[in-house]
Deep mutational scan, measured.
Amino acid sequence: MQIFVKTATGKTITLEVEPSDTIENVKAKIQDKEGIPPDQQRLAFAGKQLEDGRTLSDYNIQKESTLHLALR
């Protein structure tokens, strides 16, 4: 499925993911596309910060959802 990640600079990244993917996997995909190390990424959805060990389906993130990326 496709999801979107909006960066602090307003850029939107499109990612191909599975509901079973962990947040860690998603951060690795962002690193592949943007070169941002996962340990510098903070992802949020619906106002909640997402934890590495959880999956997209844990957070009820569905196709075409938009996550927000902040850098630490």
Rank of each mutant, 00 (worst) to 15 (best):
M1F: 14
M1R: 02
Q2A: 13
Q2L: 15
Q2G: 11
Q2D: 12
Q2R: 13
Q2W: 15
I3E: 00
I3Y: 01
F4N: 05
F4Y: 07
F4P: 01
F4V: 06
V5W: 01
V5E: 00
K6N: 09
K6G: 04
K6C: 06
K6D: 07
T7F: 11
T7V: 09
T7Q: 06
T7D: 14
T7H: 12
A8E: 09
A8I: 07
T9K: 15
T9N: 15
G10N: 14
G10K: 06
I13A: 02
I13D: 01
L15G: 00
V17W: 03
V17A: 06
E18I: 10
E18N: 10
P19M: 14
P19D: 08
P19S: 10
S20H: 14
S20Y: 12
D21E: 13
D21A: 11
D21L: 06
D21V: 05
T22H: 08
I23E: 01
I23Y: 02
I23C: 03
E24C: 05
E24F: 13
V26W: 00
K27V: 02
K27C: 02
K27Y: 03
K27Q: 02
A28P: 01
A28V: 15
K29Q: 12
K29M: 14
K29C: 03
I30Y: 03
Q31V: 05
Q31T: 11
Q31H: 15
K33D: 04
E34D: 06
E34T: 10
E34L: 10
G35S: 07
G35Y: 04
G35L: 05
G35I: 02
I36C: 04
I36G: 02
P37K: 09
P37D: 15
P38R: 12
P38V: 15
D39L: 13
D39Y: 10
Q40K: 15
Q40A: 14
Q41S: 03
Q41D: 01
Q41V: 06
L43R: 00
L43G: 00
F45Q: 03
F45K: 03
A46Q: 11
A46L: 09
A46R: 13
A46P: 02
G47T: 05
K48A: 14
K48C: 04
K48S: 10
Q49Y: 07
Q49S: 11
Q49G: 08
L50R: 00
L50Y: 01
L50H: 00
L50S: 01
L50E: 00
E51S: 06
D52C: 04
G53W: 14
G53D: 15
R54G: 06
T55I: 07
T55L: 08
L56S: 01
L56H: 00
S57V: 09
S57M: 09
S57A: 11
S57D: 15
D58F: 12
Y59P: 00
Y59E: 04
N60A: 14
I61S: 01
I61W: 01
I61N: 00
I61D: 00
Q62C: 04
Q62E: 15
Q62F: 12
K63G: 14
E64Q: 10
E64H: 15
E64A: 10
E64F: 15
S65K: 03
S65G: 05
T66C: 04
L67N: 01
L67D: 01
H68N: 06
H68P: 01
L69A: 03
L69N: 01
L69T: 02
L69E: 01
L71Y: 09
L71C: 05
L71A: 07
L71W: 06
